[in-house]
Design a protein around this nucleic acid. Sequence first.
DNA 1: ATTGTATATAGTAACGATTTCTATTATCAT
DNA 2: ATGATAATAGAAATCGTTACTATATACAAT
Lengths: 138, 138
Amino acid sequence: MNLATNTKIRMTRQRQQILDHLSSVKTHPIADELYQMVRQQMPRISLGTVYRNLEILSDSGIIQKIDVGGTQKRFDADISNHAHIRCVKCGCVGDLDVHIDVDFEDAARKACDFEVLRHRLEYSGICPDCKDKKAVLM
Amino acid sequence: MNLATNTKIRMTRQRQQILDHLSSVKTHPIADELYQMVRQQMPRISLGTVYRNLEILSDSGIIQKIDVGGTQKRFDADISNHAHIRCVKCGCVGDLDVHIDVDFEDAARKACDFEVLRHRLEYSGICPDCKDKKAVLM
DNA sequence: ATTGTATATAGTAACGATTTCTATTATCAT
DNA sequence: ATGATAATAGAAATCGTTACTATATACAAT
Ligand SMILES: [Mn+2]
Ligand SMILES: [Mn+2]
Ligand SMILES: [Zn+2]
Ligand SMILES: [Zn+2]
């Protein structure tokens, strides 16, 4: 299951907490980070519940799962179309509103025999914090 | 260690086989697929050796490790700058020579506080084989 | 060709992220 | 309030990848 389903989902206390916490941050947390956040309010929640709900919420199109390399998937309550940049030093992920006026899919259609569906633009670099740390060491 | 190192590496029989097999295909195989290929010639090679050598070869800049989503990393003996497209049905990965005349890094620099280093453009779609299979079912 | 030594190997165990399993509990349309 | 269905906690399992270790190999110097 990968696209948004139109099945209505039950709103459990756990699911609501996960969604609330994810909505309140701009950091693109991994599953375990959300687990730690929600545990403050619900100490008995299980990590499996966090994983399952993140899956259900992203399948429903309410949040998005993002894969910017590295070993862990990240999650974003902002489902608008925007790019991401990952810090090669600390692994943090930031938003990036680049608007490049190019029809990417169309360009790709001319270059292969696939039925082109979507594209993803991802950046890597060094975040402000890590830039500062580097400066201190010099 | 992530960038090309200038340390010279020993050429073992195992390493040569892995490199030869990878160079002979255009399929962007995963580690286990290369393991199966090399096993035809060297039945005693261990999967750990395949993983270690793929790491060493990509650190040396001789091959590239590519991450196009999904759970497994893929490898490519073609180190030229080109994009990839992944089939959402079967997971196969194809090459894509799209040349979009845009300074991606520069566009990103204006949109965030990161020191922008590089970008990656990735596509997903349906490969020719899976298009045919779908047609047969209709 | 022989040697020395740093590096690589096979085989196996460990790891870490994610998924699956199952008995119990909660949601929500009726 | 009831009951059908979906969700939960907690634990075990899965799977890609990495680490460990005793033995073997590559290769530069002799
Ligand atoms: Mn975002
Ligand atoms: Mn390629
Ligand atoms: Zn950073
Ligand atoms: Zn396909």
